[in-house]
């Protein structure tokens, strides 16, 4: 698209997200060591052999960070995917549905919203067994109301515009209007919500892992690393700082990228 302005958040956020993606991809072909207990001293600070040091169980931290990037991306994609794929259509449906039906959808939504996400994840893990996927589907389900709500409010504005009236006069039915007018005009809102939810999902994964309900022991995860480090924080702060920084980079990257993408996709910001 000619003339569209590349903005700073898009570039910076994009680079940070790219960094996380590259780490995940690299981990498929190369890691410095295997992800297991190594016959080396525990809790080494960063050094020539272990660039980011070793943890309490004498595992290489860099290896964990690279492998953890996969988990992080997986977690975000599953949770946000579930939430957006269900939440956005539900929101549009609620906005375009008349009277009681639309209200019923939103009341159901409110009930779900009132349900704590972590509690839902714990329930799911108990019912269907633990594991990252199950936990993240639960987090995704718990995030549906956020998407539905924001989509509905955006969609309500859109369907009351004159261009939607013009589209009805043109002869379009509700499905065409939802697809051609409502969806494109709520994407900005959805993108911002997605970037926020992505960050929340990463943090939720960390919390769940701590409770033993998220990523199981023996699978690499930044959240897990962070939580495992807490007992040795006073003597080996790098074990908290490194995964903490990785999480911060990912969260910041997705937030910036979301903001930048929203502006990039807005044709109103294209030069006159």
């Amino acid at each position: 698209m000619s003339g569209r302005r590349i903005n700073a958040p898009l570039v910076v956020g994009g680079l940070l997200v790219l960094l996380v993606v590259i780490m995940a991809l690299v981990s498929y072909v190369w890691t410095p060591y295997e992800f297991k207990f190594l016959p080396v001293p525990k809790e080494q600070p960063p050094n020539a052999e272990h660039w980011l040091g070793t943890d309490r169980s004498a595992r290489d931290v860099l290896t964990q960070i690279l492998l953890g990037a996969r988990t992080t991306l997986f977690v975000g994609v599953v949770a946000v995917g579930v939430a957006a794929l269900i939440g956005v259509p539900v929101g549009i449906l609620a906005a375009m549905s008349p009277g009681r039906f639309g209200q019923l959808i939103m009341r159901g939504n409110d009930i779900l919203l009132a349900f704590p996400a972590l509690l839902l994840a714990i329930m799911f893990s108990t019912l269907y067994g633990g594991g990252t996927t199950i936990a993240m589907i639960a987090i995704g389900i718990a995030t549906i109301p956020a998407f539905a709500r924001i989509t509905r409010s955006g969609a309500l504005q859109v369907i009351n515009t004159e261009y939607v009236a013009a589209s009805r006069v043109a002869g379009h039915g509700p499905l065409a209007i939802a697809w051609k007018h409502v969806l494109p005009n709520v994407t900005g809102l959805v993108i911002v919500q997605a970037s926020v939810s992505f960050a929340i999902a990463i943090l939720a994964e960390a919390a769940l892992s701590y409770l033993g309900l998220g990523t199981p022991t023996g699978e690499p995860s930044w959240g897990r690393m962070l939580l495992e480090s807490q007992n040795v924080l006073h003597r080996s702060p790098h074990l908290a700082i490194i995964p903490g920084a990785a999480i911060a980079v990912a969260v910041l990257g997705f937030n910036l990228f979301g903001d930048g993408l929203r502006d990039y996709l807005d044709p109103k910001l294209e030069g006159r």
């Binding site: 515009t161 004159e162 013009a166 006069v169 043109a170 051609k180 494109p184 044709p267």
Partner: peptide
């Protein structure tokens, strides 16, 4: 066919 009042609001900004 109709012509509307608000010249901005009657055209979808994304089309």
């Amino acid at each position: 066919q109709l012509v509307f009042q608000d010249p901005m609001g009657s055209l979808d900004p994304r089309m």
